[in-house]
Design a protein around this nucleic acid. Structure first.
Lengths: 231, 231
DNA sequence: CGCAGGTTTGATGTGTATCAAACAATGTGG
DNA sequence: CCACATTGTTTGATACACATCAAACCTGCG
């Protein structure tokens, strides 16, 4: 752990997260206010209905933002990837659950701390604004995905999206990766059932577009064809 | 038109829009940079692919944010209501079309103008941040709606949402209102077909939950029962 | 009045949900 | 280390909701 307590110097998202907009000394001061938290797969960061007094930047791992319908079926509203920010900055109570999909590491701030930092550093508000706009865009892409008619297009689209998220390079996706989502979570994300997701993955494998290793491992055999399916 | 050129003093969204965070004199200065624009139903504000050099606050009317799938079917990604902000602040090119659903009036700013205003007035960045967070929340609600299984829940949910949007009061919805959306647009929003939407509305009327006047007019006869359908 | 765009209604097929059971994979205690 | 429980995944048979295709019907407007 470095002098700042958060080790910004070694932080893998130090130049993509919102705090990257700050000057080194400003960030140093912010870092002293925050703290690192780790979550194991399945652990809850925020629970719907909680007093909304914290927020966080994801350093590594993945989070899901969820709600439940009246029958208790989980619906995933958003995914958070490294450098993503989570936490509602203005609402008094949290609307949705935020849960770790994989073991994760986060940089957590109390809302009071963040608000005072925003007051002090105008660049921080702008950086958070930028992140919010990116998040709006991501959420709209999710809507496009869910709006697809046909389960095949939805599943193919999700694979392409996860492949991109798993890749370090922004332009093209990872060729081989592990799904951080269970079948049930994929179903909750796409508005399908577990069985349909399973069958669609089976069909994609049968067509040779992907290969699977165990339940989670995905191998993109023909990424172009997959993307074609999405349209 | 008032001295400021935009008539902020009489603006119906003056204390809900992002600019409401500014001091009167600051707002005055911003107002001089912007201009009022009116759109008739169906007119395009931004087109996908355009250089992204403007943004706007909606004063009255309604907008849709859309994209098209490969078969040319329109998919609605978001609705914008009065006091809502539209325009991507950081992307170089616009990703989606923004089109007027009804005759609308907007307060338009060039991106350069807005960026310099953000530099000058830190409160503006915070206000836009707040709006963005609200928009994220609205978009997530749309995802919840689309994720519903069963066309009945989707259509009922949309009616409840439109009723709220049509109301001036924030707590309960309007009892009677006109849908700003055609059947095709509703279908594009919910991921259904025109025929299914039409049939669902017919079914709701047959059950006495709503009454219809012409193609657009909706009368909420039993709003509680409608909301129950949504869950 | 008559046209065009939008809406409703009907008949039919398909895709996905549902129900059910077998099958890994993972972890636990003896 | 193995038997076992547990959780997640796959596969199958069936039913139903929605899409699709087709045609008639409003509604607003020139």
């Amino acid at each position: 752990m470095s002098a700042g307590g958060l080790g910004c110097a070694e932080c893998p998202v130090r130049d993509r997260a919102a705090c990257s907009a700050l000057e080194p000394q400003e960030r140093e001061e912010l870092a002293r206010a925050g703290r690192i938290r780790t979550l194991k797969r399945g652990e809850t960061l925020f629970a719907a209905g909680d007093r909304n007094d914290a927020c966080a930047t994801l350093i590594e791992g993945a989070l899901k933002v969820t709600s439940f319908d009246s029958q208790g079926v989980e619906r995933i509203l958003a995914l958070v990837h490294p450098s993503g920010f989570t936490g509602e900055l203005f609402a008094p109570f949290t609307h949705h659950d935020v849960v770790a999909l994989t073991d994760s590491r986060l940089c957590v701030f109390s809302r009071a701390q963040l608000e005072s930092a925003i007051e002090r550093y105008p660049a921080l508000a702008q950086a958070l604004l930028r992140r919010s706009q990116e998040e709006i865009h991501e959420t709209r892409e999710l809507i496009e995905l869910m709006g697809r008619r046909g389960a095949a297009g939805k599943v193919a689209g999700l694979l392409v999206a996860m492949s991109r998220a798993a890749s370090t390079s922004p332009c093209h996706g990872a060729q081989s990766f592990d799904l951080p989502l269970t079948r049930g979570e994929i179903a909750g994300l796409l508005g399908l059932t577990i069985e349909t997701v399973s069958r669609q993955l089976g069909a994609l494998e049968a067509k040779g577009l992907i290969a699977r290793h165990g339940a989670r491992g995905i191998d993109m055999r023909q990424p172009r064809q997959l993307e074609a399916l999405v349209d």
